[in-house]
Design a binder for these strands. Structure first.
Length: 945
RNA sequence: GCCCUGGUGGUGGAAUUGGUAGACACGCAGGACUUAAAAUCCUGUGGGCAGCAAUGUCCGUGCGGGUUCAAGUCCCGCCCGGGGCACCA
């Protein structure tokens, strides 16, 4: 890449009476313009260098703009991307916007502004803020999920999923046309298909009309239409997101919310459960992340067992992972929403049952699972144990969810804690089948007991009995072996406006895909963002849309984000979602950085989409992300002022009594803007002007002449006045300081509260670095002080020690210790009074990934013409850092008592002799003989007496 | 409730593989420079006890146990904070 010449820096550097103080604002603007004009960050899909793909989870452009928490991961990935570039890679590091979403729509409802308009505005703000920080994003590859040229391909991929089914024999997606061929030949007995409620012969299939065929095929498509429950708020006439529902009522207005069944689209992600599980073995994610995903998938094996119901036609099928405990079943629990409940409830129990069902209907799934209080109602019906004929009462309770297994469990109180508590609470007698393993106080989920009270299983070890029972129920024809997944198919539709329209047309109740050539199906403009009739989305309010019989649901937020990493590879392609040469070249994302909050949502969906696209032959890899690093969340550190209730008087925090009052008077805790508080000391003048002088008349009761604020760590949010805008910090200290300070705060993976206080230290470091290059004269001018002298051994040692440390830290993502390594390096070079170019240049190259602007400035000042970004990372040479001796810690009985400097060549006997002769060692040995001397070379010595 | 994760000085954190706990910073205290301030530089800074001091000594990584010559690090049990739990993104 050819750079325009840039002589400005050199001229000034050469001038003895120049003004070369560290003017970060000017320097940063200058180089940002330079990099942008030279296309320094533009990446080509063709290169001789090895490729490396660094990806950030792209942001939702919210109206609040970027706060200091957002860039944490971006800075880390930026440092790593730049480091990889220095190491000789062709690095792809793109950025874009996850631009569809609920907040923009909510904003539109409240303010009448079209989401496209507010989103555009928010993106402009984000972009400006991101540019301030000096990232090396290739903006020519930017994507926006709400751009028709992007969602055209989201819709296209949806159509691929719609036109595919999952072949269980091949364990991969295949065209639905292939399934039609199978049906024509085998009917519903076709090999490799999932179980279905439809049963038909090949002849019957051929005789079906089109609508009947499509109805059956819908049961197999990877993107399919079905029915599901949503949070329905009658008063608002709309479907609510989970976090818009608080304690069973709507967050806005507090209206009641109930479950309502609506037609929904789904992705058949469950068919991929095994491959999603297996794929985890081939990716470099944290163990915690893999665990979360496999727990979410929740694969378990057990049996489905059918119990007949006393005096009834219907039967009850339960799923259990512990068929061995079948003689310990003391009651059944079924999900209150199952239709079966109505069939089996006895007249005497009907009123109680109906009341309980009404209660459960108002409860969210989350509330039901989190509920500690045990509740439930007896239906009056009894199931019959198929092995001993015992009559088992059937209960309903909210802790059993309809969506998992068969929505019914056989309860074994001696072996399951929840069942045990339930039995205790309702005084249901408990059968002990595990003898002394059960103490009557707690359930014991052991698999190691030998069964008792278990009919034909008496004396059989539990593990063995599992198989025996499965075989027995299979022989009796009342059940079968069953692998179950906790994971459910992904709900893929929203009754909303601001999302991708489905390329689907409904004709007489049958869904037809649009022709791919007609994509994108653009989102029409609407006059009102209000919901449509009967819980439908706003699109149902548009006569032309409805007249064309188009689907009125839109896709959820995760649609666009499930494949965006592919679009970056070939963002301008208008023939394909991404060309095969591009996806073959860039292949998997080598490094993906983002929060754990996406652990089971976005990450699983994008893994599934990748697998489906791979199965259908569109890409050459079936895992999207090779390595995943989770960044922690930056929390806000809120500040409070305390107003005496009913007055305008504010009490300093230290004066408040332990019960939270002041002289017995109640205080109001008020969030105050953290930006007008220095540490915990309130800026009283700024406070008076804050919020249009709302507190202008405030009187303060001070301690030591100051007003001290209270603190609390909370989520960073505008409403808590604890957000800090990166722009302010960049203006005050510069982007390089800001970047390094964000890293210096702590490990990238860890969550921590933001505190601006320490930023001065990082800023001082950069100024100290600057002084290795320029000296301030008495008259305020600056002289450059670097020399061409050859470095000394001591200087080379400091340099090479740092090269190793910084390279290691970069490789293991430890950027906080990386920053501290730079600080130590500059401190040591300052102590050595080292101003040599041969030392300075490698330092600047290494620093350029952390603080690119100052590094580029000084690099050019030293006389280099090309960009420091294209330099090569210095190579560590061990010969400069070799030591001949080490200061060992000497312990007696494991307690460190002294240190001794011993040659690294010394043999074990030599060391033992030296140590035993040591005065302090002898003092602690107190005349006793040594029992053992442990000597670990280059580590420590321990004398055991 | 379930799954994951974290807890180390006044503060952010370091200790990479079980081997000198507190690197590097912030803050604080004292000092130098200055008419003064800012900036910069220097010194000290986990806690207790003893000592004028050098220093010595005991305690110390959320709490209680354990393994080990040796534990912030491994094991068991508990407490507290954070994230997720399927329509926020």
């Amino acid at each position: 890449m050819k750079h325009k010449s840039f002589s400005h820096a050199k001229e000034k550097a050469g001038s003895i009476h120049g003004f070369m103080e560290y003017n970060f604002n000017e320097i940063e603007k200058k180089w940002q313009r330079f990099w942008s004009e030279n296309g320094t960050y533009t990446v080509s899909n063709k290169s001789d260098k090895p490729k490396y793909y660094v990806l950030d989870m792209f942001p939702y452009p919210s109206g609040a703009g970027l706060h200091v928490g957002h860039p944490l991961g971006y800075i880390a990935s930026d440092i790593y991307a730049r480091y990889k570039r220095l190491k000789g890679f062709n690095v792809l590091h793109p950025m874009g916007y996850d631009a569809f979403g609920l907040p923009a729509e909510q904003y539109a409802i409240e303010n009448g502004i079209h989401p496209a308009v507010s989103t555009e505005k928010n993106i402009a703000t984000f972009r400006k803020q991101l540019d301030n920080i000096g990232f090396c994003f290739d903006w020519s590859r930017e994507v926006r999920t709400s751009d028709p040229q992007y969602y055209k391909w989201t819709q296209w991929i949806f159509l691929q999923l719609f036109e595919s089914y999952f072949d269980r024999q091949q364990q991969k997606a295949a065209p639905i046309s292939q399934l039609v061929v199978l049906f024509e030949q085998y009917g519903s007995a076709a090999p490799g298909i999932k179980p279905s409620t439809f049963s038909f012969t090949a002849e019957e299939w051929k005789a079906y009309n089109e609508a009947q065929k499509l109805d059956i095929l819908m049961d197999f498509r990877l993107a399919y239409c079905g029915y599901g429950e949503v949070n329905w708020c009658e008063a608002l006439g709309t479907v609510l997101a989970n976090d818009e529902v608080v304690n069973g009522v709507s967050e806005r207005g507090g209206y009641p919310v109930v479950k309502k069944k609506l037609r929904q689209w789904y992705l058949r992600i469950t068919e991929y459960a095994d491959r999603l599980l297996e794929g985890l073995q081939h990716v470099d994610f944290s163990e915690a992340m893999k665990e979360m995903q496999s727990n979410w998938i929740g694969k378990s094996s057990g049996a489905e067992i059918k119990f007949s119901i006393l005096n009834a036609q219907s039967s009850l099928t339960v799923y259990t992972t512990r068929p061995d405990t079948i003689f310990g079943v003391d009651f059944m629990v079924i999900a209150p929403e199952l239709d079966l409940v109505d069939q089996i409830k006895t007249p005497g129990q009907a009123a109680d049952v109906d009341a309980y069902i009404a209660y459960v209907k108002s409860r969210s799934e989350r509330e039901r699972m989190a509920e500690k209080k045990i509740s439930g109602v007896f239906t009056g019906a009894y199931a019959v144990n198929p092995f001993d004929g015992r009559e088992i009462p059937i209960w309903i309770s909210e802790y059993v969810l309809a969506g998992y297994g068969t929505g019914a469990i056989m309860a074994v109180p001696c072996g399951d804690e929840r069942d045990f508590k339930f039995a205790k609470h309702f005084n249901i007698p408990i059968t002990n089948i595990i003898g002394s393993h059960f103490n009557g106080e707690d359930a014991n989920a052991t698999k190691d007991a030998v069964l008792e009270n278990s009919g034909f299983l008496n004396g059989v070890p539990m593990r063995e009995a599992m198989e025996t029972v499965i075989r027995a129920v299979e022989e009796k024809g009342i059940g079968k072996r069953k692998v179950n997944y906790k994971m459910r198919d992904a709900a893929f539709s929203r009754q909303r406006y601001w999302g991708e329209p489905f390329p689907i047309q409904w004709k007489n109740g049958t869904a037809y895909p649009l022709d791919a050539a007609d994509l994108p199906l653009e989102l029409p403009t609407v006059d009102s963002y209000k919901p449509g009739p009967e819980g439908e989305g706003p699109l149902a309010n548009i006569p032309e849309w409805v007249a064309r019989e188009l689907e009125t649901n839109t896709m959820p937020g995760y649609a666009g984000s499930s494949w965006y990493f592919l679009r970056y590879m070939d963002p301008k392609n208008d023939q394909e979602f991404a060309g095969r040469p591009a996806t073959d070249y860039w292949n998997q994302v080598d490094l993906y950085i983002g929060g754990t909050e996406h652990a089971v949502g976005h990450l699983l969906y994008s893994r599934m989409w990748t697998k489906a696209l791979y199965d259908l032959g569109y890409i050459g890899f079936d895992e999207p992300f090779k390595r995943l690093v989770n960044q922690g969340m930056i929390q806000g550190s809120s500040r409070f002022v305390y107003r005496i209730n009913g007055t305008n008087e504010f009490v300093s925090q230290g004066l408040i009594a332990t019960d939270g009052t002041y002289n017995g008077r109640v205080l109001d805790n008020i969030h105050v803007d953290v930006n007008i508080v220095d540490g915990t000391v309130l800026d009283q003048e700024a406070f008076a002007k804050w919020r249009n002088s709302e507190f202008a008349g405030a009187a303060f009761i001070l301690e030591d002449g100051k007003y001290i604020c209270g603190t609390e760590v909370e989520k960073m949010s505008k409403s808590k006045f604890n957000t800090v805008n990166p722009d302010d910090l960049v203006n005050k200290y510069g982007a390089d300081t800001f970047r390094m300070y964000e890293m210096f705060l702590g490990p990238v993976e860890m969550s921590k509260p933001w505190d601006t206080k320490g930023i001065e230290g990082v800023h001082r470091f950069l100024k100290k670095l600057w002084r290795l290059f320029y000296k301030e004269n008495a008259d305020g001018t600056f002289t450059h002080i670097w020399t061409d002298e050859a470095p000394t051994a001591a200087e080379l040692k400091v340099l090479h020690k740092s090269i190793k440390k910084i390279e290691d830290d970069n490789e293991r993502f430890s950027f906080n210790t990386g920053v501290s390594a730079f600080m130590i390096l500059v401190n040591e070079l300052t102590d050595l009074k080292c101003h040599k170019k041969q030392v300075a240049e490698p330092v600047l190259i290494m620093l350029s990934s952390y603080a690119p602007h100052i590094a580029e400035e000084l690099w050019h000042a030293l006389g280099n013409d090309s960009s420091v970004l294209d330099a090569a990372f210095p190579v560590f040479e061990e010969k400069y850092t070799k030591e001949s001796e080490k200061e060992y810690p000497i312990s007696i009985n494991g307690k460190m008592r002294t240190t001794m400097t011993i040659s690294l060549e010394a043999s074990q006997p030599d060391v033992e002799q030296l140590v035993l002769n040591n005065e302090i060692v002898q003092k602690w040995m107190d005349g006793k003989p040594p029992k053992k001397i442990i000597y670990v070379k280059n580590k420590m010595v321990n004398v055991v007496v």
